[in-house]
Structures are given as C-alpha cells and as structure tokens.
Design a protein around this nucleic acid. Structure first.
Lengths: 250, 250
DNA sequence: TAGTGGTCTAGACCACCGA
DNA sequence: CGGTGGTCTAGACCACTAC
C-alpha cells in the first residue's frame, strides 16, 4: 500500500507522528530500558521491518535517526549496535587543562562520597523530582599532576542510579558516564551546558587551593537519556588558569 | 537500472563517492559560488533529479545532507532555498551577557577599521594563506548599555571579502555573518571555537575599561564555508563579569 | 488546483564481515 | 558463503503553499 495509509501496526507508542518517528521512539524506549546490550547486534533491519510491519526503508530511517543521535551504531557487514558512548567524553572531549605547556587531559579523579540527599528546588526541578524527594548525590574532585583543578557536585535520578550507592567509591569514577552505562544501564545521549566566570569565595578558594577572589569557571550541565529524561545535573568549579574549552559549532 | 552501476552522469565533481555525496558536493560548490540566491527556490527535487539523471530519492538524500549542514532549507509546499544563516548567531545563540539581572544580547557594535593587513604566522596558516600574503583585518568593539564588553580582531580571506573594504564602517556591523552573505556572498556553515580565561594586561585592561589583572575571556574562532575553506579567524576578548556561554552537546 | 516537499513502499544490486 | 548494512531506483499517496 502506498502512502501514509496505515496497514497493521498495533505497537506504536505514538499516534499521529510519521511512522519512522514513532518507530524511533519505540526503539529509543527499548534501548533506554536496556532492551539490548552493547555487544550483540540488534535484529537486522529486515527482521525489525517485518516485526513492525513496515517497509525496509522506513525502518532504516528510524534507525538513522538514532544513529544521528549517537545512540545506535552501524557496522557494515556486521549489524547495528547500541553505542557505547564516547560521550563519556564531552568533558574529556571539550575540556582541556593546559599543564604549563602541553595539553593533557585529566589524570586523577577522586569520589569523596555517594549518598542519598535532598536537592534544593532548582536541582529538584531540573531532574523532574518531587520537591521533597531525595536524589543521589556525588561529591567529586579532579586532579592533574597532583594539583586540584576541579570540584564537582553531581545529582542523579534516585531510582535509576541506585547501584552506585552500594559500590566502592574507587569504582564509581573516573569515567562517570561509563559507570552509568555499565553499572546502571543508563545511557546519556545529550546534554546542555552553561559556563560562567566567577571569583572564588573563601570556601571555594580553600577547596580549590587558590587565593580568594581568584577567577573560577563554573560549568553547569544537565544530561538526558534517549527518551528525553534528565538523568543528571552537575555543577563543576574549575580553576581558571590552565583552563580551555573547545567546541565545534554547526 | 538498479544499484550503483552508473548510468549517464558526466557532471559529477567526484568519482568514487556515492552518487548522493557527489551530488551534495556539486550543489555545495554551486551554492558557494552564489549560484542561487536566498529568495528564490532551487529547482524542484524532481527537476534536479532529472537534470542530474538520478532518481528522486538520491537527489533528496543529497539535499538532505545540505539541510543537515544548515546550508539549505526546505519549505513544505513551497520549495528548497539557500538558507540565510541564523548562524550569524553562534555568538548571539551561545553567548549571553548578563546585564545585572536580565539576560540580554548585545546592543551595539562598532567597527573601528577595515583594512588590508598582513597577519602573523598562526593566523596566516589558519586561513591557508601564503606567509607574506595580506588578509582583511577588522577591528571591532561591542557594547551593552553603553558599557564596553568585547573587543574583537577579525581576519578574513582577502579575495572573498574585498567588498567590505569599500563599505562605510557603519554598514559592516553589527551582524557580520549577515554582511558576509549579503555583500560578499560568503556563507559560513561551520566553526571551531576555543575559550580560555586570562587576566587583562595593561593594554587590554584599558581597552575593556577594567582593572589590570581582572579576568578576561578569550574566544578564538575559525569559520568555514560549505566547501571546507577557512573564511574567517577571529579573536574576542570579553569582560568575564556578565559573561555566560551556553551550549548543547550531542 | 497545480506544484512542492514529506512519507512510504517494494525490490534491485553492491560492499563488507565473519564463519 | 550467507547475512548485514549501503546505495539506488521507480512509483505511490499525503500535506502543504501559493496562486
């Protein structure tokens, strides 16, 4: 049958979206729920198309969406896989701390605590939690050449990241997003980041080991999963010296 | 005929690329040369497909590439157009200067000079110029509420931006990318940006009207056209107070 | 109402991977 | 070699825009 005149669906999450978008959402939901792992391929395009009762091209387009979003990965003669995000990167990809001369990434990361804690209103709102609900809170510091460069507070969806509470602290860092994937099955696909310059008050100055009044970079980030749920909110304070931020604009 | 077995091409720029990519490059080149304007639509997909001797779907895919890159824009019942870049935006989209309380974009921009000038080696290299060649140099300042917040040096490809040399200064700003399009026919489609924090030396402090030693944000950017040529390199120094940078990571 | 882009189908051949 | 994704075709109907 040609055109949008539906045939025999039944399982679409959505209603008046184009089929390929409904399919995209359906696949996204399944991925967010851990329906497929990182090592085995999804069913082939052909199988998925038949399973959903759509043409191959339509299924391909749905998959293409998720590939563009960095959620899926195609390997030519092999199959389509859930992507192990090098997104873990964003920071490591975009942030660099210049060690005197050369440009080197972070060296050490230390997680000071992981516990349940009630966030304040703005954080609570960003995570879409009830105002009195608890979240998971992580306190973390980053060093380079033994020098403390970044302090971070990280707030997480309480239900999705419960496994972190019972892990030894050393195992939580240093690659948070990797830990999210491996131990909690949560995949971050998108984030919003904002960067400001401020000066260190006494407390921050002490914890970053700089003079009070020194410039400090504050980065706030909200990270989302495939389905658009805010998984994490974090705020990082970084020493402004040795700091560089790179980005590509399209 | 099915499959990649070519039919009757002849005009493709490229050889062993998929057809839709060769088409993309061909269209891109035509756009970069000003082959189509902003107000009239390109020939319809059907016409283009016939003109190039490919199937409609193949031509659509080529166009889709350029749409994703922000070069073309589709308007449903109307046609496909060369996009007037709101990229002009990157700054206005990502950069915000917080005026005490509210978040407002730039207000005023003043171009101090536009002239030929020989860039130093790093800039020269970024623009892909001979080491002794001249470029076009622009000196610019930006104000908000009468307060000077940004000073900028802008270096441009000498041949492509010659029209700027004979324009009244007031007409050059404040929307540079728009000027590039309207008066020079140059469309920026991509940019790389890097951001650092430094402290103002005497000269910079004077020109930004802050105390020497105050924190200053330095943003360096290289901008490219559809074909991948570096059109512009610029460096901006901004007062760190009232400064915010927002970005989405994908 | 004519023409444009948007969605969907069905089926072909090619290029690559892994057993 | 069989199976997977990658490219390409040809043609249908839908949704929108502009006249």
């Amino acid at each position: 049958m040609g055109g949008g005149t539906a045939g025999g669906e039944a399982n679409g999450i959505d209603s008046r979206l184009p089929r390929y978008l409904a399919l995209r959402d359906d696949l996204a939901a399944k991925i967010a729920q851990g329906g497929w792992n990182f090592v085995d391929p999804l069913p082939s395009e052909m199988k998925l198309a038949k399973q959903y009762g759509v043409a191959l091209g339509t299924m391909r387009r749905a998959i293409e969406e998720l590939v563009r979003e960095g959620v899926l990965e195609r390997r030519h003669g092999s199959g389509t896989y859930v992507r192990r995000s090098d997104f873990s990167g964003s920071l490591s990809r975009y942030l660099r701390f210049r060690s005197t001369h050369s440009t080197i990434a972070f060296q050490e990361s230390r997680v000071l605590s992981v516990r349940r804690r009630r966030p304040n209103a703005p954080v609570s709102e960003r995570l879409g939690l009830d105002s009195h609900a608890q979240a998971i809170f992580i306190d973390r510091k980053r060093y380079h050449d033994g020098e403390l460069l970044v302090t971070e507070e990280i707030w997480l969806q309480p239900h999705r990241f419960a496994p972190l509470l019972s892990m030894p602290l050393e195992r939580v860092g240093p690659l948070m997003y990797r830990t999210y994937e491996d131990d909690c099955g949560q995949i971050v696909t998108r984030a919003e980041e904002s960067l400001k310059i401020s000066t260190a008050d006494a407390e921050l100055a002490a914890s970053l080991d700089v003079e009070p009044g020194s410039p400090v970079v504050t980065i706030e980030r909200t990270s989302f999963d495939v389905a658009g749920l805010a998984l994490e909110w974090r705020r990082s304070h970084a020493r402004a010296d040795h700091f560089e931020y790179r980005i590509e604009i399209r």
